[in-house]
């Protein structure tokens, strides 16, 4: 009975999480290959312990931060978020992680900083997909400082209360639920505060298709597919398409973009 009580409001909000199996078997992580099953097959080669994140740029306390020192200082929460891929499929993921804002607080952001850049680790010997230039490695992503500080933005270290599986971006990855999934930099090895919009991998590869902001927006089509609707993973062969929500349903971020033309800044 108790389970039913907690599950039904979630279901009503369309927030019934996908199975651990779905979340960990269907991934885009091109460092391990371009197939959806490649990450689950090859990501176990990645050494995730010990792990350090280089934090540099416009910060008060730059340095190499050991994850084992960093995480205990943070408040780990569970956040059940919708996840919308730019390929027009979606899932619901119960992340465990802490707010990026708290880490930024800890390292101290200097006054000139306007953007946060993220870099995924690059280890060709452990990441077979990086032996071919599918993208200009290492994988780079970025957020505006106010986006990075938004309380919805997480650095996730787990799923379903378990340590982050390698195929999902172990040991630590970005989660920005109102943006397309490719913004969620995985296996982060470097965070840089800058005063300029940082280059981002997919934008570098194809600027016409991928903008810096990449907010989920049903009204702005990707040149190769419509973004108006999405297919929920886990519904089997006959899952009905569902309408995609502006900002993936996280309307509270709308104020960040007041006065901006989101067709231009896609």
């Amino acid at each position: 009975l108790g389970l039913g009580l907690t599950a039904s409001p979630l279901r009503a909000a369309g927030l019934e999480p996908n199975s651990f199996e779905d979340i960990t078997s269907y991934n885009n992580y091109y460092e391990f290959g371009t197939g959806k099953d490649d990450p689950a097959r090859y990501a176990d080669q990645l050494t995730t312990d010990p792990w350090t994140i280089k934090i540099d740029g416009l910060v008060e306390k730059p340095g190499d931060y050991a994850l084992s020192d960093l995480v205990p200082q943070m408040t780990i929460e569970e956040r059940i978020y919708r996840f919308r891929c730019v390929e027009a499929w979606s899932m619901v993921v119960p992340w465990n992680g802490f707010e990026l804002a708290d880490l930024l607080e800890l390292v101290g952001v200097k006054s000139g900083a306007k953007y946060v850049a993220f870099e995924t680790v690059l280890r060709p010997e452990e990441m077979p997909g990086t032996r071919f230039p599918v993208l200009d490695w290492p994988y780079r992503e970025g957020l505006r400082l106010d986006e990075a500080r938004h309380p919805l933005t997480l650095l996730a270290t787990g799923i379903y209360g378990k340590p982050m599986p390698n195929q999902n971006g172990a040991p630590i990855r970005l989660v920005v639920p109102w943006k397309y999934g490719f913004k969620y930099a995985k296996s982060i090895s470097r965070i840089t505060l800058t005063d300029q919009e940082p280059p981002t991998s997919w934008n570098m590869a194809n600027a016409r298709e991928y903008g810096f902001y990449s907010n989920v927006n049903p009204e702005v089509a990707h040149p190769r597919w419509s973004q108006a609707t999405e297919r929920r993973i886990g519904g089997g062969l006959f899952a009905k398409r569902e309408p995609t929500l502006m900002f993936n349903g996280y309307d509270e971020v709308a104020s960040l973009y007041q006065g901006m033309d989101l067709r231009k800044n896609f």
């Binding site: 996908n18 269907y26 959806k36």
Partner: peptide
Amino acid sequence: LGFQNALGADPVD
């Protein structure tokens, strides 16, 4: 296999 849900997370794909 698709009907039996044995094609992974996204059988349509």
